[in-house]
């Protein structure tokens, strides 16, 4: 009897251990993996769309997702990476603040075996991120350059307004455009200046250029905000009907301006496609895939007078 009594607690103990182990393994299997969405800035609606689309897609795939705003500050971005790694996030969907400055943050995640998928902006390293999903700005601007030359009948004077000079997209767009336009010697670039992707700065830059070159025929801008600023400067100078303005991004106001003849063309980018692809890649990574392309281009579409109907809101 005494022997039997001794056996009961031992069996109970064994049962309790089995129960705890089972509970533990159940919790591990049911707890969703966590995805951090770290975005350069949420001060610009374009990046808000990028962030929210990435988080929504991650949630739709069954993961927990949280958005971190780096406020265009690489130091704050570094804090977000440290917090994400310390809090046990399993993947990072990342829009960097700085192509060079953000590399060390991505490397920290890599060292912690946390995959990083860059969206829209790249980091200047092919060894850091698991994959980088980027707008094919160069090819988009090749198409833009081709349209530009046709619209200009291969001759005329033009101004180029660049974005941030430290941003890779600025130069990818400029190089793509020039890879076509520079083959036409009668197209003369009379000024090339940066306006930091900013509408007001673009207006000021073009106002000052117009004082020296009032006879320009076209303005090519590295983004749509600057195209709108350039258009304002042309309106102030009374030359908006004669000078053609070309932008890049596919912003709603510029697409509308193309349809009513104010802007000549823009390159439509697809932030939702980039964000959703990054989230899907994270999902595939969790399921064991490892061979991702280092850089995955996302096609940019030329929006012009002839096809603007396809791109007006709701289409």
């Amino acid at each position: 009897m005494l022997k039997k009594m001794k056996r009961v607690p031992a069996l109970l103990l064994l049962f309790a251990v089995l129960l705890i182990t089972r509970c533990g393994s159940n919790t591990g299997a049911e707890e969703p993996k966590k995805v951090a969405v770290i975005i350069s800035t949420l001060n610009n609606p374009w990046f808000v769309v990028l962030a929210e689309s990435a988080a929504e897609k991650a949630r739709a795939l069954g993961y927990e997702a949280k958005i971190f705003d780096s406020q265009n500050n690489t130091a704050l971005e570094a804090d977000h990476f440290e917090n994400a790694l310390a809090s046990g996030y399993d993947a990072i969907l990342f829009n960097p603040t700085d192509a060079d400055g953000s590399v060390s943050n991505v490397l920290k995640a890599k060292a912690a075996d946390v995959p990083v998928f860059c969206m829209d902006r790249e980091v200047n390293s092919t060894e850091a991120a698991t994959s980088q999903i980027l707008s094919d700005s160069y090819s988009g601007c090749v198409a833009m350059g081709k349209y530009f030359v046709k619209e200009m009948n291969k001759k005329g004077k033009y101004v180029e307004i660049l974005g941030l000079v430290g941003d890779n997209n600025t130069w990818a767009r400029s190089k793509g455009f020039h890879s076509v336009v520079d083959n036409y010697p009668d197209l003369k670039m009379v000024a090339q200046q940066s306006a930091d992707f900013d509408r007001n700065k673009a207006m000021e830059v073009l106002e000052s250029v117009l004082q020296a070159h009032p006879d320009i025929d076209a303005v090519f801008c590295g983004n749509d905000a600057m195209a709108m600023g350039a258009y304002q400067a042309l309106v102030a100078a009374g030359t908006e009907d004669r000078v053609k303005v070309f932008g890049f991004d596919g912003a709603d106001d510029v697409v509308k301006s193309i349809s009513n003849g104010k802007i000549a063309a823009t390159g439509m980018q697809f932030p939702v496609v980039m964000a959703q692809t990054a989230a899907s890649y994270a999902d595939e990574y969790f399921k064991g895939k490892r061979d991702f392309p280092q850089k995955m281009p996302v096609a940019v579409e030329l929006v012009k007078q002839e096809n603007v109907e396809d791109y007006l809101a709701g289409k």
Partner: peptide, 16 residues
């Protein structure tokens, strides 16, 4: 094959 290229500019130059 996209995986043969780590630098996007190389791909652009092939088209060029």
């Amino acid at each position: 094959d996209l995986n043969d290229f780590s630098n996007t500019m190389d791909l652009n130059n092939v088209s060029e």
